[in-house]
Design a protein around this nucleic acid. Structure first.
Length: 273
DNA sequence: CCGAATTCCTGTTGGC
DNA sequence: TGCCAACAGGAATTCG
């Protein structure tokens, strides 16, 4: 499931591949995926638009055309592929952006959870969902004081850190790794996190996310980036998906539990409550 | 307002 | 081996 490092890898790859291309026409095969839901409006706004840049805000990809932005969230299994326009559509390609040069960008998503929405420049940052998002780990505005304030909730720390308004970009893989790094039990109440631990959490988030970006993200389950090249951070995971394996710091078997419905991996010795 | 539960979806997994 | 329920999960929505 793509999180910040995987989305950043996709962004870089796509930038190399399709920057400057102009859309000829768009095909949509699953209407609930797009917004606004008007198919004609969606197609018309992208007609003959030229791609100026691809940005990223948290896990959202922002394709910048003239004055309109295509905001894409990959959710669990969204992937892009670049193919010739006349290549046959495969089972799970739900949206095809055809370019004027005879190539096409295919959005492939087995579970149909991804979203593609159009927003004008002026609304992008002032409307949901972007308007509510918190700061990314790399953002200097994310201070221990800011985090401490956002952690004033009765939810478990893991649940709070998955909330994109608290800290931006962590998903189920990296939140487990960050909590292991910070030696915090995932079920601990968020509001019990000390100022010092808030600082540790920020440092660990930066460390984990930076390293994952450097390695091209993690390739677990079916995730591959848009070139089919696989990330290498899965080899660096300390706890996620490591149930019953021994903690590399203390040799205690890693435990798997559920925290608010999410599969959660942690070391019961290193991450005491 | 807050937090938990539900919902979306389908390929994979596990139990019998 | 085959069948089917349970499971995976980000975030919007609904519920209490």
């Amino acid at each position: 499931m793509p999180e910040l490092p995987e989305v950043e890898t996709v962004r870089k790859t796509l930038t190399q591949m399709i920057l400057g291309k102009t859309i000829d026409h768009v095909e949509v095969y699953y209407l609930p995926m797009i917004s606004p839901h008007s198919l004609e409006s969606f197609k018309n706004k992208l007609h003959h638009a030229t791609l100026d840049a691809i940005d990223r805000i948290g896990k959202y990809l922002i394709f910048r055309f003239d004055t309109i932005n295509l905001m894409v969230h990959l959710r669990m299994e969204g992937k892009f592929f670049l193919k010739p326009s006349d290549a046959p559509r495969t089972n799970h390609e739900h949206i095809i952006y055809h370019f004027t040069d005879g190539t096409s960008l295919r959005y492939d998503d087995v579970r149909k959870f991804g979203t593609h929405g159009l927003k004008h420049d002026k609304e992008l940052h002032t409307t949901l969902p972007i308007s509510k998002l918190g700061y990314e780990p790399s953002d200097s505005r994310l201070t221990k004081h800011v985090l401490k304030e956002k952690l004033k909730t009765d939810r478990a720390i893991k649940t709070a850190l998955l909330d994109q308004t608290v800290i931006l970009g962590l998903g189920n893989i990296y939140v487990d790794e960050v909590l292991f790094c910070a030696k915090i039990n995932p079920t601990r109440k968020a509001r019990r996190t000390s100022l010092a631990k808030c600082e540790t959490l920020i440092e660990c988030s930066r460390q984990v996310i930076d390293k994952a970006i450097t390695l091209g993200g993690s390739s677990i389950r079916s995730y591959t980036d848009s070139l089919g090249v696989t990330g290498r951070f899965q080899n660096e995971l300390k706890v996620h998906l490591k149930a019953d394996e021994l903690c590399e710091l203390c040799q205690t078997p890693i435990r798997k539990i559920k925290v608010n419905g999410r599969g959660t991996y942690y070391c019961p010795t290193c991450q005491k409550r």
